[in-house]
Design a protein around this nucleic acid. Structure first.
Lengths: 165, 165
DNA sequence: ACCTGGCGGTGGTAAATTGCAAGCACTATG
DNA sequence: CATAGTGCTTGCAATTTACCACCGCCAGGT
């Protein structure tokens, strides 16, 4: 994977799977999108699944090469911020469907399930509101911010569940 | 992967990725769902991406173990038919979103792109019609069949594109 | 100048996965 | 009896993945 290589077939589903069809790429993007993690160590330390540092480094590099992330270029030793690109932001509906399927057919923890449930209930309208929010944060687009943000709502539900259980 | 193992985390997205997060599982399901391939050699010979027989055998076994497919049990030497289960049928919206993303952000061939475009234009209504169709074919549920079927429509568009180009 | 802690990684190694080519046991057909 | 077709299985080499420890760089404090 990585840069622009030739896909095995011209099928859109295959072409997508070839970019994300591994155990980590989508999880890294998930943490950036829903967890608002922008820096290497934030991503590593906050990882639910415990990603190893070299795998995280490799995936970040591939995601940058394939145009899903941009990396603020800094001198070595200084922390660099990663930002989503428009293609990555458009993965929100994919995440919503993956989450919906998972909460119906896989064992999940109550707190983490809530995000997927809210995204499902909110439907495409909520997804697009969230995508606009991500464009503001990551692309610096100039559109009015609503409050509370979608992520704040998702996190509030998560926190409420972890405290009350 | 395979049978019911403990997921790395309780996140629905991760739980889903752990089932399909490889380069072949989803493609096998795609061919069964959209290509109506039900037998081992049909799947191997018709594969756009050229799956090897041992990998196909492994993935079919895992998909059966994890409850996404059922295998008609036959005497050895006789061909066995694979059928989708309800969880697998509910992957249709996931495929639709993966296809939509792929045709916007990845190079795809015109003919194969059409299926994804039709699924996108049809929206959730078409997805559910298609899922009902799959339930009839694979689960033997008793509901009235419409004509032409969704798959017939998808394939007709595909064939029209391959002939005219 | 020097230490300290945070920063984004790299290297070594072992395990798992993949892909290719053959072959196998069985059944149905002629 | 031979042939073709069924769903796989077996070796084996090559690649990929993953875990662990460790590294060099820079900023800030003293």
């Amino acid at each position: 994977m990585g840069e622009a290589y030739e896909p095995r077939s011209g099928c859109p589903i295959n072409a997508t799977i070839e970019m994300f069809g591994d155990r980590w790429s989508l999880l890294v993007l998930r943490d950036i999108i829903f967890g608002d993690r922008r820096y290497f160590r934030e991503l590593q330390a906050g990882s639910e699944e415990g990603i190893a540092s070299n795998i995280l480094a490799d995936r970040l590099k591939r995601l940058v090469e394939s145009g899903l992330l941009t990396r603020e270029d800094t001198r070595p030793g200084q922390r660099a911020r990663y930002s989503l690109t428009e293609p990555a932001i458009q993965l929100v509906p994919v995440f919503a469907q993956l989450g919906s399927w998972g909460l119906r057919h896989r064992p999940t923890s109550r707190a983490l399930r809530l995000r997927a449930e809210l995204l499902e209930q909110g439907g495409p309208a909520l997804w697009h509101e969230f995508m606009d929010e991500l464009r503001r944060e990551h692309l610096g687009s100039e559109s009015p911010a609503r409050s509370p943000s979608v992520r704040e709502r998702l996190n509030a539900a998560y926190l409420a569940a972890t405290n009350s259980s």
